[in-house]
Computed example of a mutant assay.
Amino acid sequence: MVTEEKLAGWTGPSSATEQEKQERTERMIREAIDEHDGFDGYRSDFSIYAKGSYANNTNVKSDSDVDIVVECSDALYWEEHDPAKSGRPSGSTPYTGPWTPEKLREEIAAALEKKFPGSVTAGSTAFEVDASSARVNADVVPSFAYKLYFSDGTYRQGTKVFKKDGTSIVNYPKLQLELGKAKNVRTNGLYKKTVRILKRLENELVSKGLTEEIPSYLLECLVYNCREEYFSLSTWRATMQGCLADIYNYTMRAEPDSDRWLEANGAKYLFHHAQKWTRAQVHKFAGDAWDYMGFE
Rank of each mutant, 00 (worst) to 15 (best):
R227K: 13
R24M: 06
G41A: 01
V206P: 05
H81F: 08
S64D: 13
P215C: 07
C221K: 00
G209Q: 11
V129H: 02
D152F: 12
D63T: 06
E35C: 12
G180C: 06
F39T: 05
K199V: 03
K164N: 06
R200W: 05
I247D: 04
C72F: 08
T194I: 00
T211W: 05
K181T: 15
F271C: 02
N57F: 05
E212T: 10
Q275C: 05
S232G: 14
A122Y: 00
T194Q: 02
R227I: 11
K6R: 15
P94D: 13
V60I: 15
P89Y: 07
V170L: 06
P256M: 04
A267W: 01
I68H: 03
D63P: 09
E20K: 15
L198Y: 06
F116Q: 11
W261I: 02
E26M: 11
N188E: 14
T239N: 07
K147T: 10
W261Q: 01
A254Q: 12
A55D: 11
G266N: 04
T187I: 08
F295A: 02
L218I: 10
D74F: 14
Y292G: 00
L104Q: 08
Y230M: 07
I214G: 07
S119F: 14
L7N: 01
D246Q: 03
S143I: 07
E220N: 09
E4C: 00
L233N: 04
H272L: 02
L205F: 03
Q275A: 11
R156T: 15
P13R: 10
M240L: 04
A126L: 03
A280K: 00
V141D: 08
D259M: 00
Y42M: 12
L112R: 02
A55F: 01
G123H: 05
D82R: 06
L7V: 05
A8D: 06
S90V: 14
F231K: 08
Y172E: 06
Q241L: 11
K160T: 01
E102P: 11
T58C: 12
E212I: 02
V170G: 04
S143M: 04
C72H: 07
Y146P: 09
A126H: 06
W78M: 08
T93N: 09
P256K: 04
L177T: 13
M1T: 12
Y95L: 12
V170D: 07
E31Q: 14
G153W: 12
Y224F: 15
S47W: 06
E5R: 13
E255W: 10
N56Q: 09
T121S: 12
L104P: 14
K192R: 13
A55S: 14
D82F: 04
T211N: 08
G189P: 03
Y42E: 14
K174N: 09
D65Q: 11
L179Q: 11
E204K: 15
S207Y: 12
S143A: 15
E228A: 14
K163V: 02
M240P: 01
E18H: 11
Y230E: 00
I247K: 05
T17I: 14
S119N: 13
G118E: 09
R237D: 04
T187Q: 11
R156L: 12
A110M: 03
E79H: 07
K183W: 05
